[in-house]
Every structure is written in C-alpha cells, then in structure tokens.
Design a protein around this nucleic acid. Structure first.
Length: 389
RNA sequence: GGAGGGGUUCCCGAGUGGUCAAAGGGAGCAGACUGUAAAUCUGCCGGCGAAGCCUACGGAGGUUCAAGUCCUCCCCCCUCCA
C-alpha cells in the first residue's frame, strides 16, 4: 500500500485509512472497532447519516457532528450530476466544499443503477445514465467512478457495482455478480490515490453460492473493507437476515464490514449481532421529513390526531434538543403547517435516536452483554407501549 | 325601487334532464418509506354489513318514466343603476 510514502500522507492529519478490531463480544459475533481516516477516527459499530448531495438534509454539519455523527455518506452519482466533481475538486474537495472536516464515505452510484433503473443502461464497460435532472446522457465506468470519488476526496470510496433488484433469477444474478467482480478489479486498478480507502461490495442476490464465490474473489483482490450490498431492495426480511448472518462472518475479521443501506433500528441491532460494523440508511432523515419519528417505544407519526394536545416530548427517554424543548403537540403543529422547523427538529431527533442506539450497542459490546442487549431490544418491539397508546 | 348574477356534499368550486353520492382542489383521517429522482408517495373522505337501500345540491310546490339540472312562488347573498 505504501501509505507512508504517498505524498498525500504528508499532508494528512492522521495518516491513512486503518481499522483496529478492539474487542469481540463473547456471546455473539458483535465487534467493537476503530476506523482511522485522514479526517479523523470513527468508533464502530457506526451509523452513517446519508448526505447524498453533500448535505445531511436540513442539518448543518455542526448539528450533525453535535448529534454524535463522526462519518457521513455522500454520493458519487448525484455530486457528479450536480454540481460536478470537477467543480468540487476545484473548490478543494468535498470536505471543504460542504464544511465537514470529518470522515466521508462516498457511495459509487451502484445504488442509482438500481434506483434509477428506467434511466440507465448497463454494459460491460459501465453504466450510461440519462440525467434525472435535465435528461442529458452520461457514462460512468469503474474508472470514471474512481476518478469522481478521488475528485471528491472521500475517505472511503466504494467500488462501482450493480445493485440488482429483488427478485432476480439465478442466471441474471450470476451474470451481474461476475460483472460486478470485474468492475471491482477495474476499480482497484484504476484508483490512483491509495490514501483514500476502497471497499469492495458483495453482490449475488439471494443466492448463497454466488455470495460465497463473490466474497472469496473480493477478498482475493484485497480491499480496505468489505460491504454486503444488494440488500434492502425490497426483499423479505428473512432473506436480508440470512445474507447477513451467513456472510458477515465470512468477511475478513481484520477489516470493517459494511451492510449497505440498512436500516431500521432492529435491522441494525440484529446485524451487529452477526458482526457488521458499518451502516447507512436514509430512514432517519427521510422519515423525519415525512413526519415519522423513531423512539424507544416505537414509531411516532407526529401528524396523527392523537398528538394534537399532547404536551409530552416525542420520547421521554431521549435527551436530544428536540425532546428537551418541544412537545408533540408543537411538533405536530409545525409539521401540519408545513414549517421548515418541523423537518429540522424531526431530523435532529431521528439522527439523535440512531446515534444513541449505536452508542448503546457499543457499550453493550464493551460489557460483553450484546446478546442480552439484542434480545431485550427485540422483545420490546412486540410490546405495546403504554406511553404511546 | 330597477337591471343582472348567484346560493352544490366541512371549505372553495365544476356540473344545465338519466352515464351524479355529484369532477377538481383544499381541509381532515390513516398508511408507506431501508447504499435519497422523496419536506415524497398512497389510500380513505354522507349513512347502513355486501348486491343494494336511505339521506343529500337554499326552502316549498310542480313538470317528467327520470330533476343538482326545467317551471312557479318564497328566502338569502353579490354587482351596477336610482
């Protein structure tokens, strides 16, 4: 890797990328770790708020950091389309551009190959997109993808992959997997800045033999971390659980393991149990904007009539800014009135909830009580909460 | 006092003989959201348990097989002229 010799290294604050496995829970596969990046350290298991367009929607970077976030996710495809990676490069990179001087992971655009299915075409060479913004045509190959992510200057780059939908038949899943593996090889060959970490992504749909072979090949190639991709694309929960429980342990012990796009609090708790270290999901931010709040007693749809005159905080067990200062009745009023502050306060709460959850998860691992923590968490899901009924 | 326009389901507002429990908004109510084309999307929105029946288009009466739609009278609102 020659990190010590790279010119970028001398400019960096803390050196290159690294992962230290600090502890493994005795009763489960759960792990406690530390990721080191040029922009700071991250304790794992970690949740990365999603900031697709170079912003965690509705929050300032100071707020995001203040809530406990130490790494965020941003997006190659979206920043390439607008404002353009060359502009961001000229502006000194994404960290400076968005005023976030902490770690950033950039997704590759692989998810847009899935989510913008109607607007793209895949060939062996890469993916051509018709811009969802102005209809113009663009082409992203593994090489272009690396160039964009290096222009953005993210701390962790993701390989370009094809995230296939669910369900997908075996033949398609296999063909796609093999292409994704060739793309991974090309990404690795094309990257110029060894200072930015590069993660490989497992695909193969729901097919165990494909997952297994894919992971073996990725590990042979050698990446700084490994992701399980192709989940949270509409598959039944059991399938996601199977993939996670069976293949997280197959990923190298000494590298971070990232479950892409996950997820619900219970999905996170369950996945940590099987040895996942990193998560990202739009859920806390998007659902906040849609009026759904995560709480220790289940979800709260703040616009519901039952909260009209409710003077209690959203979650009495939460000490976030929103819960310390505002009633459900006020939050409901703001949301129904379409006020911007509703979105801000909701997002503060949801991100706060996820950060607290991750903190509790780490504490449980430290205490070697993760299994009990997880069992307790899951049992509460099925209990009807008195406070909320 | 004269001339004209209008009163529609919670609100606004379409509808000028049957295809009308009545378009479309809004409000209200509920649901969805998992590497963000998302401050988005979906459903419900007179009553009764379904086929169906009942109650509804200012009020009363009438014409017609059939009226929110046509006629008569009445009540109320708006504009202009005195």
């Amino acid at each position: 890797m020659n990190r010590e010799d790279s010119p970028q290294n001398q400019e960096s604050r803390d050196g290159g990328f690294g992962f230290t496995l600090l502890r493994k829970d005795k009763g489960s596969e759960a792990r406690l770790g530390r990721i080191t990046t040029p922009h700071g350290e991250v304790e794992t298991p970690v949740f990365m708020p999603v900031g697709t367009q170079g912003t965690v929607k509705s929050l300032t970077p100071e707020q995001v950091f203040g809530l406990g976030s130490r790494i965020i996710l941003s997006n190659t495809y979206h920043l390439y389309m607008r404002p353009g990676h060359d502009l961001i490069r000229k502006m000194g990179g994404l960290h400076r551009f968005m005023n976030w001087d902490h770690p950033i992971l950039t997704d590759s655009g692989g998810f847009q190959i899935y989510s913008l299915g109607a607007l793209r075409k895949i060939t062996e060479d890469g993916a051509s997109f018709q811009s969802h913004i102005d209809g113009s045509r663009h082409f992203i190959s593994p090489e272009v993808c690396m160039d964009i992510q290096e222009a953005l200057g993210s701390d962790v780059m993701m390989c370009l992959d094809e995230c296939i939908p669910y369900p997908a038949d075996f033949a398609y899943a296999e063909r796609s997997l093999d292409m994704t593996l060739r793309w991974a090889r090309r990404c690795k060959a094309a990257r110029k800045n060894e200072h930015q970490a590069l993660f490989g992504i497992s695909q193969g749909g729901e097919y165990g033999e494909l997952r297994r072979r894919g992971i073996e090949e990725l590990v042979d190639m050698g990446f700084d971390g490994y992701a399980l991709g192709g989940v949270s694309v509409g598959e039944p929960k059991e399938i996601m659980r199977e993939i996670t429980s069976e293949f997280a342990p197959m990923l190298p012990q000494e590298k971070p393991r990232y479950l892409m796009g996950v997820g619900l609090p219970e999905d996170i708790v369950e996945s940590v149990y099987h040895g996942i270290d990193m998560f990202d999901c739009v859920m806390p931010t998007r659902n906040a904007r849609n009026g759904m709040l995560f709480t220790s007693h289940g979800k709260v749809v703040i616009r519901n009539a039952r909260y009209r005159g409710d003077d209690a905080p959203v979650d009495s067990a939460c000490s976030c800014y929103t819960c310390r200062n505002y009633s459900r009745a006020y939050l409901r009023h703001l949301f129904i009135a379409g006020e911007i502050l509703a979105i801000v306060l909701n997002t503060i709460h949801n991100i706060s909830y996820f950060m607290n959850l991750m903190r509790q998860i780490r504490e449980a691992i430290v205490k070697d009580t993760y299994r009990a923590f997880r069992d307790d968490f899951m049992s509460k899901l099925t209990v009807t909460d008195p406070e909320n009924n």
